[in-house]
Amino acid sequence: MKAFRYERPASIEEAARLAADRPNARFIAGGTNLLDLMKLQVETPATLIDVNRLPLGRVEATPDGGLRIGALVRNADLAAHPRVRSEYAVLSKALLAGASGQLRNKATTAGNLLQRTRCYYFYDTTKPCNKREPGSGCAAIGGFNRIHAVLGASEACIATNPSDMNVAMRALDAVVETVAPDGAARQIPIADFHRLPGDTPQTETDLRPGELITAVTLPKPVKGVHLYRKVRDRASYAFAVVSVAAIIDKEGDKVGAARLAFGGLAHKPWRVEGAEAALVASGRADDAADAVLRGARGQGGNDFKIPLARRTLRAVVAEATRA
């Protein structure tokens, strides 16, 4: 770990201003990912801006019947929130599928949005990684890439986004609220928040320098069966190999409406609206899978994710329509 300056601003405005003034500054909340990366010098911020005391820890109803989740709401608290459990069950289930009890007590909503990839090579500073060191190359391509992306990857990076929460947020069409150093507020739809790697895998989100996440807003609840199916290498405390967040509303025996988002497949939560339409149209999971997996390409070690995603989707659709 490199020595760093530590700041604990008293207000949101001050936090954003500090972030703009200080070169190479990072916000820290739960620190469950950032501190690990700092110990390995994958991240070497010159200043840490501790936002834990900012008034961003509340969950409140929005006028249109949705929910506004403060950036600092802990994953454990969010998962246990009565409205989240009853009306946004896919989010509660996704959160509880992630990490461990200790980590969920510490990790925050905004921090989870910014969780970085678990690519082995990203964590190993003796290896090339375009995300860690732009222009150095990608060691995962041609390497041990069992956990890597099959969709939306580039020649520069085949990393995945490891978050469970993000997949559910994508299915729910969450909106990320931010404040810029100049005080301007902005709303970023979750679909635009995370980026594909392209030529700049080091840039993972739409956030601008110094911009601080203040909340995540959920639109009013989506009717239907909420499921989060996480396929993983052990029963708990493992990142998703593939995951599916699904909200499926039945009309009689048919699928009336569906939302499907996938984790473990790409650099961002993967959602193809055409797939949802296909499922509604035919009622067949494989038609949705065809649409989701169009253009999917394995890297050798992760080829299995393509049939796995299809089979997992079948299981989820079967469960939702059986219910």
């Binding site: 678990r118 082995y120 090579y121 964590y123 190993d124 390497g143 041990f144 956990i147 290498d233 052990r234 029963a235 708990s236 405390y237 493992a238 990142f239």
Partner: peptide
Amino acid sequence: VNHDLAEYHVPVHAD
């Protein structure tokens, strides 16, 4: 490659 306990998977309680 997987030289940490996040990616070297020993059984956890749930297993």
